[in-house]
Design a protein around this nucleic acid. Structure first.
Lengths: 263, 263
DNA sequence: GCCTAGGTCCCGTTT
DNA sequence: AAACGGGGCCTAGGC
């Protein structure tokens, strides 16, 4: 048996491989150590869907947060996996190492890995710091929230994350002439679904407005995104809405792009 | 220099670590071998978004298809990554190993990894077989396609993957009384967006129908999914559409669930 | 190449 | 806990 106390990393080469030892290590300290096993294995998955992978050489990673990854030599995404909080049980009694991993959240989901041969096995402590990401949609909404004049010079924010039966409206603005702007922000290239989403919000506000007939304001759909697909642009124009490229906002350009549309 | 010819796996322990050798291995045979490096590193990413990860112990995997993964001890998804087809360049001349990886597709995307310390480095040949997945939405559509009577006893398929300006309709059926069924299938629990999707399809068919006023058929929206959220169900009912739980279909139950709705 | 939509999506945030 | 929506989503399939 190998002591793991305080070890920073344990590397077992092919000559050190003993499946009972590996099975033992797999169970101990799994809350602290991340285990990495490289070898030939078959994999079965049964759950929301089901799959079977034939014998092949793969990397299996069982992280300290209970997530399981099985990677091949291609693709960013794992071939099989289990989400964080899953529990692995290993068994070496049948002459080969078998790992069964059950999801805590979806109890009926099971990934089963049977190793025919193990090339190397590693245990190590990895950091769990995460990172800071900038330049997301949230940042873009925040920017417009702080500078609504980029949409229209006299615009003021009158709503943010406004709930509707069809989802949340990113921003609602109103300018001095009384125009209402429904702003949908996408950090990526906008497709048809983004236009449909905007359409739904505008239609909803119009239906609300029609219930108080004393007030009749113009409601203008505005899509802010990093590019737009051809079909989406056509649909946008057909419905009389407006597209603003997010890049023109990001560079601090408070251009009056909109003014040529809004009279 | 280490020979990699024909080697199945190369494992360098902490005592073998020479960053110039690792840098050299990183460049050679990267089309065949997958490289795995575990060590303390800082990471910078600049591209569609940007991020920075402080010094921490992580796993870096550079696959033979050109994908790059950086994993910590938590989460199914990598902390940083680069998609397949990316190119890594390593450099050991400044006294530490630095790997810069550029995406081929998005040329301006760069992940930069600077290792302060390397614990182990591995090269191995992994399989790239992929797998077969069953129980997906496609299978469910196929099942209904082969057995349209599960929707309504006399129903026949009159359309599949039908293109509309708002997306593709999974299935369109017609029964003997002449009712038209627009079927949207979700393999997962359906949310508001699924109802909106179905609504768009029905509205589109209705608009098509109104152009040929001699034909007036009843168009019935049908959502087949593995569960439905409360708000989605409310929206569905409000619009007069029908929900069928996919589980009731999967068990071969050709129940006449629908008949109580369709007169 | 662009565009569309599904996914064992993952993941954070809010209700 | 459930639900909703973003994501550097990824990945497959059409055109």
């Amino acid at each position: 048996m190998v002591s793991t106390e305080g070890e920073e990393i344990i590397v077992l080469g092919s000559s050190d491989i003993d499946i009972h030892m590996i099975s033992d290590l797999f169970h101990r300290n799994s809350k602290i150590y991340t285990a990495i096993i490289i070898g030939e294995c078959e994999i079965h998955y049964q759950g929301r869907a089901s799959s079977k992978a034939p014998l092949g050489t793969r990397i299996v990673i069982y992280k300290s947060d209970g997530s399981l990854l099985v990677h091949e030599g291609k693709d960013r995404d794992p071939l099989n996996w289990q989400p964080p909080g899953s529990l692995c049980i290993s068994d070496a009694d049948k002459g080969f190492l078998e790992i069964r991993c059950r999801s805590r959240k979806y109890g009926h989901e099971i990934v089963s890995i049977r190793f025919k041969r193990i090339l190397t096995a590693i245990w190590c402590r990895l950091s769990t710091k995460g990172l800071e990401v900038h330049g997301t949609e949230k940042d873009l909404v925040e920017m417009i929230y702080m500078n609504p004049s980029v949409i229209s010079p006299s615009a003021k924010v009158i709503g943010r994350e406004v709930e509707t039966p069809s989802g949340k409206i990113d921003l609602i603005l109103r300018d001095d002439p009384g125009n209402i702007y429904v702003v949908e922000v996408k950090n990526e290239k906008a497709g048809i679904s983004a236009v449909n989403q905007l359409d739904r919000y505008v239609k909803y506000l119009e239906s609300m407005q029609s219930r108080s007939p004393d007030v009749t304001r113009r409601i203008i759909g505005v899509l802010v995104s990093n590019g737009i697909t051809r079909r989406a642009r056509e649909a946008l124009i057909e419905r009389g809405y407006i597209y603003i490229d997010s890049m023109s906002l990001k560079i601090g350009n408070t251009s009056q792009t909109l003014m040529k549309y809004v009279k």
